[in-house]
Simulated scan of single mutants.
Amino acid sequence: MNNKEMVYVVSDSVGETAELMVRAVATQFNGGNVEIQHYSFVEDIKDLENIIAVAKYSHSIIAYTIVIPELKQYLDGKAKEEGITAIDLMNPLMEAFAKKFNKDPKREPRLMRKLDDNYFRRVEAVEFAVKYDDGQDVRGLKRADIVLIGVSRTSKTPLSMYLAHKRFKVANVPLVPEVAPPSELFELPRNKCVGLVITPDKLNEIRKERLKHLGLMPVANYADFDRILEELDYAEKIMKRIGCPIINVSNKAVEETADVLLAMLKKRGV
């Protein structure tokens, strides 16, 4: 009989959690000098039969994170029958959750991996929004899921970041009469680009507050009413040329604008 200290880590997912727990416990015994054999993505009883057959003739423990009821039931029963020590690392905590919060677990494998994938997609989208904010790099326009265009202070950046947290890659381009918009903007599919407009009065109010916050005089050209009308007129012409949908953000919170935008794009098949 092999007397080597062995732990078989078994999971119906990747099994990273189980291995980390086993290593944490192992450090409390003989400096963590224990051999770990990893079995990931166990999906049927045949997989478990092979593991049990190996574990039966070794000086070992089976530590597992299996949430599929049929597999767990089989492993527990067979391990007991064969005199193998099998430890469920998840079930006691799941039962505590269920009892305390009065909810039933989904018992679906790989949910943690799905959460991780969502997290990394969100991080990637946020990084994209930062990199391609305010027309910094037009190369991002074709790679974006959504491109926002509009004059300054129409919530392009806050909306880009909000949508990024919903895992959309968003680029935005400011429209300024003195600066020709990038040619790439006119090559985009019309349903990818969204124009943001605002009433002149509201924009005047927002820009005055912005100047005040910066410690500048409110009479600056940035908040001049005629200048605002010129900018809005120019932006509207660009949006009509592109043929993109337009949202008036005058009295909308970023969340509300996002809802309108996503509903609009869904209707257009994006």
Rank of each mutant, 00 (worst) to 15 (best):
Leu188Asn: 05
Val197Asn: 02
Asn191His: 13
Arg241Trp: 00
Met161Ile: 15
Ile246Gln: 09
Ile228Ser: 05
Glu124Cys: 03
Lys142Phe: 11
Pro189Cys: 06
Ile242Lys: 02
Phe168Asp: 00
Tyr132Pro: 01
Gly243Ala: 04
Val219Gln: 13
Glu178Thr: 15
Tyr162Leu: 07
Glu205Ala: 09
Gly150Val: 08
Val138Ala: 14
Met239Gly: 05
Met161Phe: 15
Ala129Gly: 06
Phe225Asp: 14
Lys131Pro: 01
Asp145Met: 12
Arg190Gly: 00
Leu163Gln: 03
Lys192Val: 03
Asn172Ile: 13
Val138Cys: 06
Val123Arg: 14
Tyr222Thr: 06
Lys166Ala: 08
Leu175Glu: 00
Pro200Gly: 06
Pro218His: 07
Lys166Tyr: 01
Arg122His: 04
Tyr222Asp: 03
Val197Leu: 10
Ile228Leu: 11
Leu214Asp: 13
Asp134Arg: 00
Leu163Asn: 04
Pro174Lys: 04
Ser152Leu: 06
Val176Asp: 00
Arg139Glu: 05
Leu188Tyr: 07
Val130Phe: 14
Lys169Leu: 05
Pro189His: 09
Ser152Cys: 11
Glu236Lys: 15
His213Pro: 00
Pro189Tyr: 07
Val219Ala: 14
Ile149Asp: 01
Lys166Gln: 14
Ala171Phe: 10
Leu203Arg: 08
Arg167Pro: 03
His165Asn: 15
Lys202Ser: 06
Asp201Ser: 13
Leu214Met: 15
Leu203Tyr: 11
